[in-house]
């Protein structure tokens, strides 16, 4: 089936089998292997991407459902030598070990900070109406859909805290 995806700002026309997941379309058809396949079941978060600005597990969606959609993958954030603030903070804080869950962690963090910025509450928020603070507990809760078996969680949380302002936590700052 013919579809067009806007990936990292670029229109990409594809002819895909309807069984192809969005993740496999990115990895196998567009050769964007930064998004990882850890479980193919939406259980591990390694394939997290931004779909029209919101984080999703790309393995749980079929490519043909996304004709015309805007997708941001890890390749769209920064490159070696030109890292985004989150990427640089992950390196500095050793927010990974083997690196396999890392693109998913970073994309999830990117989406998570936007959600926080929009004032979305989480299961650990004290109040459902206040704009939640970027506490360690909020980060832990909101990042719990991204497994890291190397268990770099402390470094991941620190990296997110370090990069949050640069990543544009505007509303939170304004509220302070």
């Amino acid at each position: 089936m013919q579809i067009t995806l806007t990936v990292n700002g670029e229109d990409r026309a594809l002819d895909v089998d309807p069984r192809v997941t969005l993740l496999d379309a990115l990895r196998e058809h567009l050769n964007l292997t930064g998004s990882k396949k850890g479980c193919d079941h939406g259980q591990c978060g390694a394939c997290t991407i931004l779909l029209n600005g919101r984080r999703i597990n790309a393995c749980l969606s079929l490519a043909v459902m996304h004709d015309g959609d805007e997708i941001t993958t890890i390749e769209g954030l920064g490159q070696p030598g030109n890292l985004s603030p989150l990427q640089a903070a992950f390196v500095q804080n050793d927010g990974y070990q083997c690196g396999y869950c890392t693109p998913g962690q970073i994309m999830s963090a990117k989406g998570m900070l936007a959600e926080l910025d929009m004032g979305w509450p989480s299961n650990v928020s004290a109040d459902l109406t206040d704009i939640p603070d970027l506490t360690r507990t909020e980060i832990r809760e909101r990042m719990s859909g991204n497994l890291c078996r190397c268990s770099a969680y402390p470094g991941i949380c620190q990296a997110i805290e370090d990069a949050a302002t640069e990543e544009g936590m505007t509303k939170r700052e304004a509220a302070e």
């Binding site: 990427q87 992950f90 390196v91 990974y96």
Partner: peptide, 11 residues
Amino acid sequence: GPLKVTGTATY
């Protein structure tokens, strides 16, 4: 690290 955080390390 820069390869891992940009998804360019090849597994």
